[in-house]
């Protein structure tokens, strides 16, 4: 959290009479703060899911080179299990599908949040001008 004091010029720009914080303003500020916190958490999730997706892609590419009859050590839980190539590829594709689905769900949430945040930003800046700082 970075706090800053208003500079003298800012204070003049804000004007002598301070804008009263009404209940609805407080609710908006709260919502913005909450969404901001959510945004950070979701960004982390998207990142880790994208990483997982990339890893799965790498593995699939790697397996393109493998022999049909090869047994692949596939990790399930904590142990590696020898499975024929076709079965591994099947498992991989279901996993990839799942990850892609999850990622797009999270991204969608993130987009709604960002939209709401920018709306709130407009409203709050319109009301409080330079007395409020919503940037990070």
């Amino acid at each position: 959290m970075n706090r800053r004091m208003l500079t003298k010029e800012d204070e003049v720009a804000v004007g002598a009479d301070e804008v009263e914080v009404r209940r609805e303003d407080q609710d908006k500020i709260n919502k913005f703060s909450r969404l901001h916190q959510r945004e950070i958490a979701l960004e982390d999730q998207v990142k880790s899911k994208q990483k997982e997706k990339e890893d799965l892609d790498d593995v699939s590419n790697e397996l393109e080179l493998a022999d049909e009859d090869d047994m692949i050590q596939y990790k399930i839980g904590d142990s590696f299990i020898s499975l024929p190539l076709t079965e591994v590829q099947e498992l991989l594709s279901t996993n990839t599908e799942k990850i892609v689905e999850e990622t797009s769900a999270v991204e969608e949430k993130l987009n709604t949040i960002r939209e709401e945040m920018s709306q709130l930003k407009v409203q709050l800046y319109a009301r409080f001008g330079r007395s409020i700082n919503l940037e990070t």
Binding site: M71, Q73, I76, G77, D78, S79, F80, I81, S82, L83
Partner: peptide
């Protein structure tokens, strides 16, 4: 989740299938 994944995997094996070779920690 990991344990559940393993259980679900074991479930896909029916009595007729070959023994699986696992490398475990």
């Amino acid at each position: 989740q990991k344990t559940l994944d393993t259980v679900l995997f074991l479930k896909t094996r029916n009595l007729g299938s070959d023994p699986i070779e696992a490398t475990f920690e």
